[in-house]
Simulated scan of single mutants.
Amino acid sequence: MQARVVVFPIRGRAWCFARPRPVLPATSASASAAGSGALPPPPTLKDLWLGISAGGRTAPENAEAVADFVADKMNRAWIGFGSAPEGSVKRRIHRSGV
């Protein structure tokens, strides 16, 4: 069993370790239109803000939502590096980090 953990610096020597949520399989209608390997649309900063400012959640739940948002953004960026053209800087960075 494999698990992906995203680690990023917060401030000084503080680090955030996050395990991105698994990507849910697309529905059959969207899968046929977007292809079998398509990711769902990324959450926007507006979605994050609306979720946090709506209330009803505790501070740790809001912090987890922010960490999940950042981890998802970083995960998508890493996937983008892996799908860059061969020989590009992004592809070399991805290859050295795998």
Score class of each variant (00 low, 15 high):
P9W: 04
I79W: 01
I79M: 13
N75G: 10
T44D: 00
A18G: 00
A26I: 02
P43K: 09
A29P: 03
D47N: 11
R92D: 09
A84N: 07
G51D: 14
S96A: 15
L39Q: 11
L24V: 04
G80M: 11
I10S: 13
G37I: 02
F17E: 10
A14E: 15
G56E: 08
A31C: 12
S30W: 05
V89S: 03
K90A: 15
A84R: 10
S36R: 14
P22C: 06
V23S: 12
T44K: 03
W15D: 01
R19K: 04
M74L: 15
Q2N: 11
F81I: 00
G37P: 02
S32V: 11
M1P: 05
K73W: 01
D68K: 02
S88A: 08
A26K: 07
A34I: 02
R13H: 10
I79G: 06
K46D: 15
A31D: 08
I52M: 14
T44R: 02
S28Y: 00
K90H: 07
I52S: 02
A84F: 06
S36L: 07
R21D: 13
A18F: 00
V7H: 05
T58K: 11
F81W: 03
A29F: 04
E61T: 02
S32A: 14
A18H: 06
I93F: 06
P42V: 05
A38G: 08
V5M: 07
P41Q: 02
R95F: 01
A26W: 05
V7D: 05
F69W: 03
V66H: 01
P20A: 07
A77Y: 06
R91M: 12
L39W: 07
P60E: 03
D47G: 13
F8P: 06
Q2I: 06
L39M: 13
I93H: 04
Q2E: 12
V7Q: 05
R21Q: 11
V98N: 13
W15H: 07
A54G: 15
R19H: 04
R92L: 14
V89I: 03
P41C: 00
A31H: 02
K46M: 10
F17K: 04
K90Y: 01
S28V: 10
G12N: 15
P42C: 04
A31L: 14
R4P: 00
I10N: 11
E86G: 05
A33S: 13
V89A: 14
P60H: 01
A63E: 13
D72C: 10
N75D: 12
A3C: 00
